[in-house]
Amino acid sequence: MAAGGDHGSPDSYRSPLASRYASPEMCFVFSDRYKFRTWRQLWLWLAEAEQTLGLPITDEQIQEMKSNLENIDFKMAAEEEKRLRHDVMAHVHTFGHCCPKAAGIIHLGATSCYVGDNTDLIILRNALDLLLPKLARVISRLADFAKERASLPTLGFTHFQPAQLTTVGKRCCLWIQDLCMDLQNLKRVRDDLRFRGVKGTTGTQASFLQLFEGDDHKVEQLDKMVTEKAGFKRAFIITGQTYTRKVDIEVLSVLASLGASVHKICTDIRLLANLKEMEEPFEKQQIGSSAMPYKRNPMRSERCCSLARHLMTLVMDPLQTASVQWFERTLDDSANRRICLAEAFLTADTILNTLQNISEGLVVYPKVIERRIRQELPFMATENIIMAMVKAGGSRQDCHEKIRVLSQQAASVVKQEGGDNDLIERIQVDAYFSPIHSQLDHLLDPSSFTGRASQQVQRFLEEEVYPLLKPYESVMKVKAELCL
């Protein structure tokens, strides 16, 4: 049975990233139509530049190519590739079939990587351009969430054990800070992308030097003109047959890092959902379990974690691919890159769409948070109580021993009897502590235990987050809708 299948058929496997999760716009960027249309555009740009620099290419040939950029006979191309065992030459023939007058000058002087690699770089750039505003929107939604809850005390956790208090907004800023680093890295790697350009079979530009009869300047002009037509500021000066596969490492490393950030955020949300302090959106008709109707599973956060793990592992592909590119190139890269580049971007696209949807509907339960604080705060307040007693004339050592005994009794009630923490009640009825009984409410005010959390939130948002989001103001209103 021949390899390949009808990918629109229910009898043929289709990647869930495309069929179930990723956005239509990201799927289109990695589609065959987008790819092969870009090949034709690159052939047109090459012909236009070659004509401008004096090669015998007519206006009629150029116009014929322009008129057929979208006229792609995919069936013919597939048949040609089956016959020739070469995808680029299959599309040269297919393009030439609908451009008979231009057929002889299509791909003039070029090698397969002229269309293959340059198209990949265009796709990487455009895919990054799709991700950047999506990530900015996630940051914006979380920034709104953090600002609104900047002063809401909550129990902090280290080692997932109760620690000092923080605020809900401050905790959210930990998430935002990681995503801001990801946004900066995505922008950097996007701006650092260079075009492969017009380089020939081993990167020496020998074929173009021959076409222009040894004119170095025209060869350099050709490279520059096509690079500018493709919208790049610069091209690699040095290439082998391909652009260095280190570029793929750079791009997928940034995406993998984004995956790590999203995994951490969504894990926190899942843990908070278990504590009943916070939940992701839950639709009115949504079913959490087929057997347990009360369940409210954090399905979206779980999906993000599941896909983020996949995204983090994909960076190993370009690392290994770059390491086995012998001399000017081997074909070890080809099949692998067809999979890992598309999957990385479709996965990143999915987790950003999902995280935006989550961040637009996060639900906080202040009463649950308050109750958990009441359970733990008495123990945390013991040092403040000791200091207040010393100020009232008591002995630190005597007070410490009193607190120690009462704390152990209260802990026994919590752990052995399943009761509430009654340390404060014990202190309130103990005559030894009568000098500070009137101060206990103040000493137990949760806001006095959150330090500068709310001020940190305000400063972080104003100095770091809002300036970073400013270039994306025009796209901030787009909502994230999930079908599944």
Rank of each mutant, 00 (worst) to 15 (best):
A2T: 14
D11G: 08
Y13I: 11
L17M: 15
Y21K: 02
A22G: 10
E25W: 01
M26N: 00
C27V: 15
F28V: 07
Y34A: 12
Y34M: 08
Q41S: 12
A49H: 01
E50Q: 07
L53S: 07
I57V: 11
T58P: 06
E60H: 12
Q63E: 13
M65K: 04
I72F: 13
E79K: 12
V88L: 10
V92T: 11
P100H: 07
P100R: 09
G109H: 05
A110K: 02
T111R: 00
S112D: 03
A127V: 05
D129V: 08
P133A: 13
L135W: 06
L135E: 06
V138C: 08
R149S: 09
T154L: 07
G156E: 00
G156Y: 00
C173A: 11
C173Q: 03
C173M: 04
W175R: 01
K187I: 12
K187N: 12
G197L: 01
V198A: 11
L211R: 01
G214A: 06
H217Y: 14
M225T: 03
K233W: 07
A235G: 12
F236D: 02
I237P: 07
Q241I: 01
R245V: 01
A256D: 05
S261Q: 00
C266I: 06
D268S: 09
D268N: 11
L271N: 01
A273R: 00
N274R: 04
P281S: 15
Q285C: 12
Q286E: 03
M292S: 01
Y294E: 00
N297I: 04
E302P: 00
E302T: 05
C304Q: 02
C305P: 03
A308V: 06
A308N: 03
L311Y: 00
M312D: 09
T313Y: 10
P318T: 07
Q325V: 12
R329H: 08
S334V: 07
N336I: 14
A344V: 02
A344Y: 12
N353D: 12
N357I: 07
Y365G: 02
K367D: 07
V368C: 07
M380A: 06
E383R: 03
M389V: 07
A392Q: 13
K402R: 13
L406N: 09
V413C: 06
V414A: 06
G419R: 15
I424S: 11
I424Q: 14
S434V: 07
S438N: 09
F449W: 07
Q455W: 13
Q456H: 08
V457E: 03
V457G: 06
Q458T: 13
R459D: 09
V465N: 03
V465E: 00
Y466S: 12
P467L: 10
L482Y: 06
L482P: 07
C483W: 05
L484M: 15
